[in-house]
Design a binder for these strands. Structure first.
Lengths: 362, 362
DNA sequence: GGTATATTCTGAAACGTTTCAGATATCTTA
DNA sequence: TAAGATATCTGAAACGTTTCAGAATATACC
């Protein structure tokens, strides 16, 4: 009996059954249906299992048989570590996990490096949540190929998927309208990357919200449209405003944008930032350059991440309930898994939160 | 052919093979070993698969056959959503995910509600990372029962598991020594829950670091011992100090602790907090009560979370590299999975970061 | 033309469970 | 005591792949 080899053989249910001379199904029942066998035999089985070092029914085999993985997969455009530094994403995940936990489901974070999709193809999940992806992203297609229940956040669902949307148009329009009402006429707009190579300062024409950008985040597009609607109503020429495309969504990127805007010579009196992280980075640089906020420059963000309320001055921003978004995504996916009647949920509200970073221009 | 029923039958590799009159193994090879069949046939197979709506080899079956899940599981004492609000845990996860991503491994967040361990028993993973658990926590035992490669963070490993440890004793001693050197003699110590019911203000004797608390976090114990060592060397009586046991690790809990300390009448000149979150909560309350920091009260934290550098005044604290800790955990686990030679890694460094929240007593 | 070598494809045995219809044995009930 | 109900256990068929030794066919070489 050469058993103590380095690569120890895993003990299986069959061996436990053989050791006791009972049927495999009886051992299975000992674990899963205690009412199906006598208490005495069950106890003997569990004891023998412990002696032999049986680790209990192997989840992979059980899952194959039952055709369920007990987890849902979260797919994300950025490299995985990034998600842990993004406050909005974290709140969303918190909400998602809250719902899943109640159903005893796990959350699998799937590494999504472009071009290397093996992890996605092999992910042991019962469904997907797609987040921060554009409709044309290669991972989306691959995920849909899996033909699992799917919910897409901030994206128009394709196929049988469910969409979780927010009223981004309204939120953005409120933000722009607020600044217009305060008397602003010259704007800077700072936004996350929409092209492969972030282009920095851009002309308004090149990113007209109506131009069909090849591969754009829906939320970003909707927000542009909201800004544009407010501009148009006030007779403000979109093409005359200053735009800056960042390389990513981070405070550092926002800071870089602000520096470029300062260098540009054109001096907007108000900044519309497509995320709070960009806004906070820009604010810091503006202050360091001696600008008073909001007297010399008004700044309005988007998302209302926790840091927005704590900055000095506190950031005026558009609030959306990221946690609720995550919870809703989880609920929709669980409903889908149960085969419940299919129904697209209503878009979530977003509303302007007035704080200290916006005021009338001097 | 009643095929379009509600619960659509999943297409399998067998059906694809049958449709083309080729062997199942050939279809499998078309997906996994393109060099094993002619390009022409492979193309036909893939086309037929697409027509039939075959989603590709089902991961569960493949995983069972290959005996690998392609993910590792993270186990956590707190309810799952909590982890997303804990800066130290997030940094750790970021590091962990960074390592895993490089090996195309996913990270499964396992819901760990006590008493309901079904998710843990069924988790489809190749190994575990245990974090923020005490050695006697029921989940630990259950995880070890799975007999998978395991790394335990901030915990002495049992069985074949690997331990990731930090020099907490040194870090804590440095923190206490720093305050002693500044001239402090009366201390308050604020710490996270160590008993089922958090007890608030406690006597020093009841939590003597040498008393064997039944179910304590190792890191917390080591930090106590570090404080105690510094106290003893300076002739400061541990039992005369003021202790407060919080109900959880949060800013709110730290705030509550500070209020209790203020009400107690005893007024320490310095506060040793076992985490930065507790320290920041306490600092806020102290300031609101009119205390100047550090003149009226010095505060030293532990962890060096990002918020520590940004508080006013910036928090003096003990730094540990949470990201590196997560990375190391990932590397150890991957090595274990590969069957590499087993070796306990050295504990990580921790060192005092001097900032503005500590100074000589008035 | 015959042997050796590639190339392409196949069959059957795993992987380790759960499930469910049925086989025994035991208990009620009239 | 016969018949029905109940409790306990069994056997075999899935679940959907991958793997690997070998069969069949084509290609190369002397």
């Amino acid at each position: 009996m050469a058993s103590d080899s380095k690569k120890q053989q895993r003990v299986t249910i069959t061996q436990v059954a053989a050791a006791l001379g009972v049927a495999v199904s009886t051992v299975s029942n000992a674990y899963n249906r205690p009412d199906q066998l006598s208490e005495a035999l069950r106890k003997r089985i569990l004891e023998t299992a412990a002696e032999l070092g049986y680790a209990g029914p192997q989840p992979l085999a059980r899952s194959l048989r039952q055709q369920r993985a007990g987890a849902i997969g979260l797919l994300f455009a950025e490299r995985l570590p990034y998600v842990f530094s993004d406050p909005a994403a974290l709140l969303l995940m918190e909400g998602l996990v809250q719902t899943l936990e109640a159903s005893n489901m796990g959350l699998l974070l799937i590494p999504g490096r472009i071009g290397h999709s093996v992890a996605l193809k092999n992910a042991l999940v019962d469904g997907f949540v797609l987040y921060a992806l554009t409709n044309t992203h290669p991972l989306v297609e691959l995920a849909l190929k899996r033909r699992l229940p799917t919910v897409m956040i901030d994206q128009i669902a394709t196929g049988d998927a469910v969409s979780i949307l927010v009223h981004d148009f309204d939120g953005a329009r409120q933000a722009a309208q607020h600044l217009i009402d305060l008397g602003h006429r010259r704007f800077g707009v700072i936004f996350d990357r929409i092209t492969d190579q972030a282009q920095g300062l851009r002309s308004g024409a090149s990113i007209s919200p109506l131009a069909d950008l090849p591969d754009t985040f829906l939320a970003l597009k909707r927000r542009f449209e909201g800004y544009a609607a407010a501009f148009e109503q006030a007779g403000i020429d979109w093409n005359q405003q200053l735009f800056y495309e960042c390389s990513d969504n981070s405070e550092a990127a926002g800071a870089e944008a602000m520096q470029a805007i300062l260098r540009s010579g054109q001096r907007p009196t108000a900044l519309l930032c497509l995320t709070d992280r960009l806004a906070l980075g820009a604010m810091e640089v503006a202050q360091r350059a001696g600008l008073r906020i909001p007297q010399d420059l008004s700044i309005v963000g988007y998302d209302d991440i926790p840091a927005a309320a704590q900055s000095r001055p506190a950031l005026t921003t558009v609030q959306q309930d990221h946690r609720a978004k995550g919870r809703l995504a989880g609920e929709c996916l669980l409903a889908l898994l149960q085969g419940d009647a299919f129904e697209q949920p209503d878009p979530l509200e977003s509303r302007l939160i007035l704080r200290e970073s916006s005021g009338p221009p001097l």
